[in-house]
Simulated scan of single mutants.
Amino acid sequence: MSESGTYWSTWQKLSFSEKLIFLKAAICLILIKCALTVLPFPIFRKLFHGLTSSKSTKEFKPEKVQQIAWSVDTAANILPFELLCLPRALATKYLLRKMPSLTLEIGIEVNPAKKFEAHAWVEKNGRIIIGDWPKTVSYQRLWVWE
């Protein structure tokens, strides 16, 4: 079966609410990609902070958090342009914006033998939600976006 056939069969198996989460993730990724492309980063950061700031909090069930992370990753892989770790982390942070203790982390790989490599991920209380990496790689946090 082709890759698009696999995606289609997976789509058909999703519940209505899972399809809605997937569509929200895809739209969020598209908007974030556009905003990162056209806006200077300080303006994007201020705008994104305003959109993700919430006075109310909501705990999400682990299954829903996992579904959102899967939807973001899958939509990022399907969309016809490159969406690396930062847009994925930003989309996840936005979709889970009411979840307390959620942070977007940005770091650099700790390996003097390699060229500079940055990475973004989202975690809650030290547990990575999206943007995990192999155990053979180590990242040093540079910035935490709460």
Rank of each mutant, 00 (worst) to 15 (best):
E105T: 13
L14M: 09
Q140R: 12
F44I: 03
L90D: 04
L104I: 10
A75Q: 04
S71W: 02
S4R: 15
N111F: 03
L20G: 04
L14Y: 02
Y7D: 13
V72F: 08
F116P: 00
F16V: 12
R45W: 06
K135H: 06
I32E: 10
V144W: 01
G131Q: 13
E146P: 04
M1D: 05
L90A: 05
L23C: 07
L29H: 03
S53L: 10
L14G: 00
L51G: 00
E109D: 03
K61S: 07
L29W: 03
P134T: 02
K115A: 01
A91N: 07
T6K: 04
S2F: 12
C34P: 01
P40E: 12
S9V: 02
C28A: 05
K24Y: 04
L31R: 11
S56D: 11
V137H: 10
A75C: 08
L79M: 03
Q12E: 11
I130R: 06
Q140S: 06
I129M: 12
K58M: 08
W143H: 14
W133Q: 02
G107Q: 10
D132G: 12
T57V: 11
L104K: 08
P100K: 03
G131E: 11
E18I: 00
L39Q: 07
I68D: 12
L39E: 02
I21R: 13
S56F: 00
E82P: 10
T136L: 06
P80N: 07
A113E: 15
I27T: 09
C34K: 09
E59W: 07
P40Y: 06
I106Y: 15
L83K: 11
L83E: 06
K124F: 09
E82S: 15
L23A: 08
F48S: 00
I30M: 12
L102P: 06
K24M: 07
L86Q: 12
Y94T: 01
R88G: 05
E63R: 10
M99F: 00
I27V: 10
H119A: 15
V72A: 07
I108D: 08
L79N: 00
D132L: 06
E117T: 13
I43M: 09
A118F: 09
E109F: 00
S9M: 08
S53C: 10
G131H: 08
L104T: 13
N111V: 03
I128P: 14
G126Q: 09
P42E: 01
A69N: 09
P42A: 03
A113R: 14
T74I: 02
T57A: 05
S17D: 03
E3S: 08
G50A: 05
Q67D: 07
Y7P: 02
V38G: 04
T37L: 14
I128Q: 14
A26C: 05
I128A: 15
G5W: 03
K24V: 01
E109T: 07
Q12W: 04
K24G: 01
I129E: 13
S9L: 05
G107A: 07
K115W: 00
V137A: 05
